[in-house]
Design a protein around this nucleic acid. Sequence first.
DNA 1: CAGTATCCCCAGTGATACTG
DNA 2: CAGTATCACTGGGGATACTG
Lengths: 150, 150
Amino acid sequence: MEEGTSKSPTHCADTALEHDYDARQWDVREGCEVRQILDRVADKWSLLVIALLEQRSLRFTELRREVDGISQRMLTVTLRHLERDGLVRRTVHPVVPPRVDYALTPLGATLHDTIQSLVTWTEAHQGEIAAARAAYDGAAAGAGAGAVGM
Amino acid sequence: MEEGTSKSPTHCADTALEHDYDARQWDVREGCEVRQILDRVADKWSLLVIALLEQRSLRFTELRREVDGISQRMLTVTLRHLERDGLVRRTVHPVVPPRVDYALTPLGATLHDTIQSLVTWTEAHQGEIAAARAAYDGAAAGAGAGAVGM
DNA sequence: CAGTATCCCCAGTGATACTG
DNA sequence: CAGTATCACTGGGGATACTG
């Protein structure tokens, strides 16, 4: 499905479509490589792993312990994806108890500010969101529906 | 599942855990409200909808047309989530052909910079990522495995 | 330790039909 | 137009077991 690998790395605004899509700010259409990368980078586990790796390189087990709730499988998958995208570098030390370190590549490090701003925003506004949630649920409950906590 | 509504809106670093979790920069543990909000905000469709709404308010059908590939159901679900979180405001105009406008709330608007930085990063580095992908796939293919394009 | 391989389940998602 | 309701399906993701 992700066969866009060797395809044109250029921005996908060149695909000819009929509907009046004016260049707003970024392409919202499917098949756009930006969409795909965004999905990868904005991924739940990716975000967590990258944030952790920002501090220092970590070993597989360390990551598994730090990222609470991730399964071994998902950690492996996430790590492979990040490695393939050139965001994380995997280093195998040929020692008897196998030791593998994961570290951010320079490219991965450039994500720092972006991710940090996302996290900062979330932390800064979680109170407001919780309040909005409570208000919404309360209104819904009062409006007649009994289903709260959707 | 999302019953943290009326719970403590405070940062979740107060939950007592036994493992030596030092305050790195943000809580990676499950049950943390930040994790949940991050998942919501970093959601594929949410990102797209918010980006679109940043320009101007849109109607349901307009959104469905702009966000290429989204199903009616997912648009509704996404919109409800964003509304509940206080990021989007839903305005119903009581006219004969029902007209509903969706607009970013002030809170939602504060996401602008963050999302924009994410998109900008992606657009700026998609070439590097594509190259990394090609290199990774090429190396894997040369290493013996024939399965490319994972 | 650091994975890979399997099985399996269910939540997310698309398609379709119906309604105010 | 703007949804809601239903059904069916896929694959994301957890649990477990095995391997180098």
